[in-house]
Design a protein around this nucleic acid. Structure first.
Lengths: 181, 181
DNA sequence: TCGTTACGTCAGTCATATTGACTTATCCCG
DNA sequence: CGGGATAAGTCAATATGACTGACGTAACGA
């Protein structure tokens, strides 16, 4: 095999993994690396499609969460993305200027700028979601039926405990698709 | 509940999710979002520790893969990270200048600059791996025993098919920890 | 000898993020 | 009503991580 570790045969240093048993047991190198590789390829699907619009990953994230949560407030979006409003600023302005997102004054609080996707924005968000769903479907096709549920549980448990309520509200499988209730 | 979607009550646009049934069925919004949130929090652990060294995520990735694969060639590292050698350049130079990584001439091919971590580099790589392992362990603790295996299968299946051989060589659970064999 | 490979580097650019300071408009409470 | 707090936007400067393109050097190998 062409295991890259064998390339080091001429050197004196032994592999770091040999002393990788620390206070908490052996590092979970497999899951650490699988998360890296899976995420690397997962986001690339959408990145390539976005390039055609002159958009990047940041535009995708904004578009996605606005699409999924019509009427989202700017502050809520900042809290989801964990970025500053200055960072959001440029991306959001570009999405608005190019007609993918619109803002409306809050009905009860006129300081708020509620965010909505336009039809164009929804179409793009949906296209990107389908790209990513295709990869997910193909992944699950090659697995036992229970792997999808287990993956959901694992990924949810990887989220910061303090964030889980917020994530559960946004990303649960049973979340209503046809209405606001 | 304070479901953010209810904030939109004053607006006329219906939620985009209502018409989110496309050619490939309903998008897997739950897994798409869980991947985002899990990865967002997963990388943050290491990011915070790296800041103390003046390093960023890119340094971590290089350090990690060199630590795990002593004698790695520069070309191989570029292939793993899927970045250009110009991008790697600065990061690698900083790691070398500050004594976390060293280079050695290849024994058989003197054009090669084989990469190794120093003791300092190994210590940092291990520290970061433990941080991430802690999150993973805690996540798996709250799950059924088979969830870890299922998560591995799912994440592996999410990788591009052409990349899976390379990933399997690097990130398999059974990979020998104590030697090069 | 000559083409290819491995690596490095210079220069310029872009996307995404940061901190800090400041403005405007609006809300809400005392 | 006045004034502090909140929602949002903006200006400026900076960091980080990535890119393309071009070029140089050394070493391999047919």
């Amino acid at each position: 095999m062409t295991d890259v570790t064998t390339e080091a045969s001429g050197a004196t240093q032994r592999p770091a993994a040999a002393r990788a048993i620390g206070p908490e047991g052996a590092p979970a190198y497999d899951l650490i690396e699988l998360l890296f590789f899976a995420y690397r390829d997962f986001v690339r699907d959408a990145d390539e499609a976005l390039a055609a619009y002159g958009f990047g990953r940041a535009h995708h994230r904004v578009l996605h969460f606005v699409d999924r949560n019509p009427g989202l407030r700017v502050t809520e979006l900042l809290d989801i993305l964990k970025i500053t409003k200055q960072s959001l600023g440029r991306v959001l302005r570009e999405l608005i200027d190019q007609g993918f997102v619109i803002q409306r004054e809050g009905a009860s609080d006129r300081r708020q700028r509620l965010l909505f996707v336009t039809e164009r924005g929804d179409a793009l968000a949906l296209k990107l979601a389908h790209l990513q769903t295709e990869r997910i479907s193909r992944a699950l096709d090659g697995c036992d039926a229970d792997v999808g549920a287990a993956a959901r549980r694992f990924l949810f448990a990887m989220v910061d405990p303090e964030e889980r309520n917020a994530v559960a509200r946004l990303a649960t499988p049973g979340r209503p698709r046809g209405g606001r209730a």
